[in-house]
Computed example of a mutant assay.
Amino acid sequence: MFDPALAGDFRIAMRRIASSVTLVTSRDSHGNPHGMAASAVIPVSMDPPSMLVAANRSSGLHPVVQSTGHFCINLLGESHLDLLPPFSQSSRRSERFASDEWREGTSSLLYLTGAPAAIFCELDHHVDYGTHTLFIGRVTGVRLFDQDVDPLLWFNGASAGVSREAAIA
């Protein structure tokens, strides 16, 4: 039974978990790129290397991943803050891949060249739960970039950053 008060409190509690911001990309069967901003992304296993992405079933990316079975997780740095609005708002969908920083990688998936890392996955398993599908992908490739990038985080409903120096101290 849906409890609006519990749902509201839960949403506030989840916003207080700092998490990395990623752009998850894929291509549909016609080769058109699709993507979404996601913070519900976690590693699952090192053997086999695998990642989990939680995608709302109403998102434009959801049917693409479900039908093609491929996706790429682009970790973001603070310099990528300007990419969040296009990848978070469907009204700005046409701006998502306008940057010249996008390149084609494994399985023709687009990756962001300036991202700290891009992780290419082949869909291995999926579980529907509530409003979302948990896509578990087996890692098929990784591109590592500049390690001196401060990560872009999501906290309390907004972007946040943490400097590497502050994290080490």
Rank of each mutant, 00 (worst) to 15 (best):
N74W: 05
G69T: 06
Q66P: 00
L52N: 07
L75D: 03
A37Q: 10
S59N: 10
V44I: 15
V64R: 01
L61E: 03
N74V: 08
V44L: 15
T68A: 07
H70E: 09
S39I: 12
V41K: 04
N56E: 11
H62T: 07
P63F: 06
D82M: 09
A38Q: 12
V64W: 00
I73Q: 02
M46A: 14
M51Y: 07
A54E: 08
S39V: 13
H70C: 12
L61D: 02
D47M: 02
M46C: 02
L52K: 04
E78D: 14
E78P: 03
P43V: 04
A40W: 07
D47E: 14
V53D: 05
N74K: 05
G60R: 13
G60Q: 13
H62C: 13
S59W: 11
H62L: 04
P63S: 04
C72W: 01
N56Y: 03
G60H: 13
S79H: 15
S67Q: 14
N74T: 09
V53C: 09
H70S: 09
S58A: 15
A40Q: 08
H62M: 06
H70T: 11
S58P: 00
A54F: 02
D82T: 12
E78W: 01
L76Q: 05
A37L: 11
V53A: 08
S59D: 10
S39Q: 12
P49L: 05
V65A: 03
L75Q: 10
S59F: 10
M46R: 10
